[in-house]
């Protein structure tokens, strides 16, 4: 549209380089720490790039030798997968019918608004009764208990995403199916849900990332390998007396890998999901 002056082009590229550096430097450093020998990390002046790359920490953490750092890490990895996975499945199962109902019957929409308004609640406002209840039912230190609690965060969000998704599917298609003689269940199964699959996938992805990221409830409600999640395990490492900072960095890289890969691969879907509410108002 407008021709860029050479000076402006130079400025643009400089600014782009700066932005790239701001984004990448901390991430690169996390990776460099994970492959630097302990001696390099403790050196003064600091070695910014290891003389020899050392991937042994990855092997350490991903091994399942009993009572090793690896066993604890693997257990927390498994717990995170299970908790986030179960909470995601449950949240989507709740969100699909509810999101469809609100999208097609606006008169019940206020109830979703109330559910979404709970986003304002700080988790600390629910933590004490939840703690007492989980203790009572023996669900402290349980992946099931934690997954249930995660629904407080995941379910409202996925329902909202599903509702916007269903809004994008014309009602007329469902009306046509009804006139064609399809029952509600047939309409949803054959027509609506296949059309909504991309939104279901995006919602599930978001829910999983939220569950994977969660820390507060996991910190409160888990204390050992039975249910302790990756985020708590990493916080323990970071706050503990671990002398090898490279190992902490390695755990960080491994924990970051799934969401970062998902983020890069699913970028378009994630951004449209993220911004749909914002742009549409």
């Amino acid at each position: 549209m407008e021709r860029q002056s050479p000076l402006f082009r130079l400025f643009l590229h400089a600014a782009a380089l700066l932005l790239a550096a701001i984004i990448l430097t901390p991430l690169l450093w996390l990776f460099v720490m994970s492959i630097s020998p302990a001696a390099d990390l403790a050196a003064k002046p600091l070695r910014w790039w290891p003389a020899t790359m050392d991937f042994s920490r990855y092997a350490t953490l991903l091994s399942s030798v009993e009572n090793s750092a690896g066993a604890a890490f693997m257990a927390s990895l498994r717990n995170s997968l299970m908790v986030a996975g179960m909470a995601t499945v449950a949240a989507v199962a709740l969100a699909v019918p509810a999101g469809w109902a609100v999208s097609r019957t606006p008169s019940v929409g206020w109830s979703l608004s109330v559910v979404i308004a709970t986003y304002m609640l700080p988790p600390v406002a629910l933590a004490v009764p939840l703690y007492m209840a989980l203790a009572k039912f023996g669900l402290l230190n349980s992946v099931f208990g934690l997954a249930l609690v995660y629904l407080t965060i995941l379910a409202p969000f996925t329902t909202w995403l599903m509702k916007s998704g269903f809004d994008g599917i014309p009602r007329e298609i469902e009306q046509a199916a009804v006139i064609d003689g399809a029952s509600l269940w047939q309409t949803l199964r054959i027509i609506t849900l296949p059309l909504a699959m991309p939104v279901v996938a995006t919602s599930a992805l978001f829910a999983f990332l939220l569950g994977w990221d969660e820390f507060f409830y996991a910190l409160l409600f888990t204390s050992d390998q039975r249910a302790k999640t990756l985020t708590v395990a990493i916080a323990d490492l970071a706050g503990g007396r671990v002398s090898d900072y490279g190992l902490i960095a390695t755990a960080g890289v491994l924990a970051a890998l799934p969401p970062v890969l998902v983020g890069l691969v699913m970028q378009r879907a994630l951004i449209s999901g993220l911004t749909s509410g914002g742009v549409k108002g």
């Binding site: 984004i23 990332l209 990221d213």
Partner: peptide, 8 residues
């Protein structure tokens, strides 16, 4: 990337 990085 920074957005996808877990908070912890």
């Amino acid at each position: 990337l920074p957005w996808a990085l877990p908070t912890v």
